[in-house]
């Protein structure tokens, strides 16, 4: 009985980690976009960057259950760090990316203890205040960040010494997409490991999780720190591919937008952020091209429709899949 139980649990875990055909199609389409849509590199580059940013929020919110309205803090921190490094002559993109990731991770670790105090509403306030504090710091340190004028003089070296960032976004998009893919693989691996499952358990019921011997605080700190690192890398990607950093990387609307993207795409299955970023950015670009003054109205309307009709009904299959797997496991 016990052995059979364990075997079925193992099978369920294996099924959860297995690559599904739809996932192959998804990434094949992403790769194909680089060959087929040369006109859209710049927009797609933004989609990849915000996809990564939303993926990072998904780790915190969708898996860890940590509601954050200040996720831009890490995004902006990473962006400024990568921008400053390039300005000071360390223009190697991968090095900048790694530095931004590590630094944001440390910042995430440090602030995670604040976030753990209290429940959802408190968390919203705390994350929001952390991002506001960083915004004000960047605003004040004019000598360092350029303040409201933005950071000037970001010069990037070619990637791996060979691929120079070009104006058409060709290299930039390939770079962002590759980084997104690699980080996605890592996130996928982590989230289907026992560690990832225990994080999901914490979200499900922290009290019970603690009762079966999983350190709740430790798990939340870990997932929040990981999410911060991801957000920092996304910010660094933006700074490197646009070679400019301005205060609005830390602004509230970044945090709100990324939450919106995640809500559009759906939380808790890693693809939600990327799909949401794609839909949000393409919709925004298309609508604001049609009607520069009133596009926000149409986006708002679409969001309302999305909520009224139900996202599950529109793109519910991955969620349904997850549910089935989760259901079988339980």
């Amino acid at each position: 009985m016990n052995a059979a139980h364990r075997a079925s649990a193992a099978a369920a875990l294996a099924a959860a980690t297995r690559w599904r055909p739809a996932e192959f199609v998804f990434w094949a389409a992403a790769a194909a976009s680089w060959f087929l849509l040369p006109d859209q590199y710049l927009l797609l580059n933004e989609v990849a960057i915000f996809g990564l940013f939303a993926l990072s929020l998904d780790l915190a919110l969708g898996y860890g259950g940590i509601v954050s309205l200040g996720h831009a803090a890490f995004f902006g921190f990473g962006a400024y760090l990568a921008g400053l490094l390039a300005k000071w002559g360390i223009g190697d993109p991968l090095l900048g990316l790694a530095a931004a990731g590590v630094a944001s991770m440390l910042l995430g670790f440090a602030t995670s203890f604040l976030v753990l105090r209290g429940s959802d509403l408190t968390r919203i306030m705390v994350t929001l205040s952390v991002s506001l504090v960083l915004f004000e710091v960047a605003n004040r340190l004019t000598w360092l960040t350029g303040g409201a004028d933005g950071l000037q003089g970001v010069v990037m070296a070619p990637i791996l010494g060979r691929f120079e960032f070009d104006m058409f976004g060709r290299v930039g998009y390939a770079y962002s997409l590759s980084v997104l893919f690699v980080l996605f693989l890592i996130a996928r691996r982590i989230m289907s490991s026992p560690f990832g499952l225990s994080v999901r358990a914490v979200k499900g019921n922290a009290l019970r999780t603690a009762a079966i011997g999983i350190p709740v605080t430790g798990r939340l700190v870990a997932i929040y720190t990981l999410a911060a690192a991801y957000a920092g890398i996304a910010g660094a990607l933006l700074a490197q591919s646009t070679q400019f950093v301005s205060l609005d990387v830390l602004a509230f609307h970044r945090s709100a937008d990324v939450l919106l993207m995640l809500v559009i795409g759906g939380v808790g299955y890693l693809y939600g952020g990327i799909v949401g970023a794609l839909l949000f950015k393409v919709m925004q670009d298309w609508l604001s091209g049609l009607t520069p003054q009133y596009w926000q109205f149409w986006i708002g309307l679409l969001l309302v429709l999305l909520v009224v009709v139900g996202r599950e009904r529109i793109f519910g299959w991955p969620l349904a899949l997850w549910r089935r797997v989760a259901g079988r496991r339980a």
Partner: peptide, 19 residues
């Protein structure tokens, strides 16, 4: 084009307009 006052959007729009 509308950039909503966000610098990286301005930059992307300018690039798209040029390219």
């Amino acid at each position: 084009r509308d950039d909503a006052g966000v610098a990286d959007t301005t930059r992307r729009l300018a690039q798209e307009l040029v390219v």
